[in-house]
């Protein structure tokens, strides 16, 4: 375990091993010779000698970023809607590059601020439960089109409840049914497994919605996050 946690001196790893240098050249000249060597042998040899692209099969520790760009950061643009319906009913709209929007509760939502703990999520709003109408097929047949102020679900906390809204007009593709059994995901992982729904707005609807939303910076400023 120790060598996993304590970094070896990276300078040792960058040391030139002439034998490996030759091997790398051969590979460059003739791609046919490239084989994935058994992982054990690679780990035993100096991984950093493969640093030059395209042959860094295994990156060395010092080449690794402190953490990878999180999947929900690099693939999404983060937007926020504050005071949705009521003060401090803050929600996020994470827009994937493909145009889909993940809707959820921002960390400043008043549901997180009250003393009573969140006890449930109820998608049974509107004429039919949001869980019942399912989009089918590539063209998402049967899917419901909801308005920006349509209610997606109720978040229950003891006697009180909070209405969560779409924030953008679009097709409702999916709601997070796991929340019904595990509402604590809203608190534990609000940005990932605690998402509320996935919407697909038309480009023109997105444009309209975007004008009403805050960027992450604007949101942090409005909610008094410390400037980093």
């Amino acid at each position: 375990m120790d060598d996993l946690v304590n970094a070896d001196d990276p300078t040792i790893l960058t040391g030139d091993d002439p034998a490996i240098g030759v091997e790398e050249q051969e590979i460059k000249q003739d791609g046919m010779e490239v084989e994935v060597v058994d992982a054990g042998t690679i780990a035993a040899s100096e991984p950093s000698s493969r640093a030059s692209i395209p042959l860094d099969l295994y990156p060395a520790a010092h080449e690794l970023p402190p953490r990878p760009p999180p999947a929900n950061e690099c693939n999404y643009s983060h937007y926020y809607a504050i005071d949705v319906g009521k003060p401090f009913h803050d929600q996020y709209v994470f827009r994937h590059h493909n145009g889909l929007c993940v809707i959820g509760l921002a960390s400043t939502h008043s549901a997180f601020m009250i003393d009573t703990e969140i006890s449930g999520v109820d998608y049974n709003v509107g004429k039919t439960s949001r869980t019942e109408i399912k989009a089918v097929g590539k063209r998402k047949k049967n899917a419901q089109v909801l308005e920006g102020n349509s209610v997606l679900c109720k978040v229950l906390a003891g006697e009180t409840f909070f209405l969560i809204r779409c924030c953008v007009r679009g097709t409702l593709l999916e709601v997070n049914e796991r929340l019904m059994k595990e509402p604590q995901l809203l608190i534990q992982r609000p940005d990932t497994e605690g998402y509320v729904a996935i919407m697909m707005p038309r480009p023109e609807d997105w444009k309209k919605a975007q004008a009403t939303l805050l960027t992450r910076e604007q949101y942090r400023e409005r909610r008094g996050f410390p400037v980093n």
Binding site: D3, D8, A43, P59, L64, L100, V136, L173, E174, M200
Partner: peptide, 23 residues
Amino acid sequence: LHRRSPLIRPRTIHWMRCESIKG
């Protein structure tokens, strides 16, 4: 999801093997 059908697909992970990255 924007271009494929919304489905739940069962998939099998046959095996996994881990290896530490020194340092």
